[in-house]
Amino acid sequence: MKSPIVLLIGFLFATLLISCGREILFPRTEKTSYHSFMAVKTACTLKFAQAGLCSEINWITGPTVDQESSFTVTFWNEKEASSKGSWVEPNAQVGAFIRMTCCGSVFFPKVNKVENGKYLVSNVKFTPGKWEVYVQLKKGDVVEKQFVTVNLDD
């Protein structure tokens, strides 16, 4: 007769033990970083057909709304190399901008060349919401642009 009561008390005690304490919440930025990581790690995510190049972005900071985000963009020839290298310098001006999907707001971060085929995009300021991160190649009137999506909703 006592055993069901002992079992019940034991169950309640065990429940109490595992339910106590602070819930471990992952920072939102980590979740979004993961989201973006998944988005860009497939081969040739950003394909510039006219230039014959593939590109990939790798986040250095962020993407997050709580501080300036930054990432690198690397370019390689799809047939001769991979995202590991060797990188190829595009025969075009490299640019980047971000666009808020809901509102069409567009912002221009800083773009600096690090080495041949690799650029640093910094001063990227997001606000909460869904964004498109664009990389652009421009040579004269020929403009190619590709983007990855970033979800920074709360």
Partner: peptide, 14 residues
Amino acid sequence: SPIATEGVVSGQGE
């Protein structure tokens, strides 16, 4: 009304 963009990127806001 929505704000439209033209130039670097063309699109329509909400």
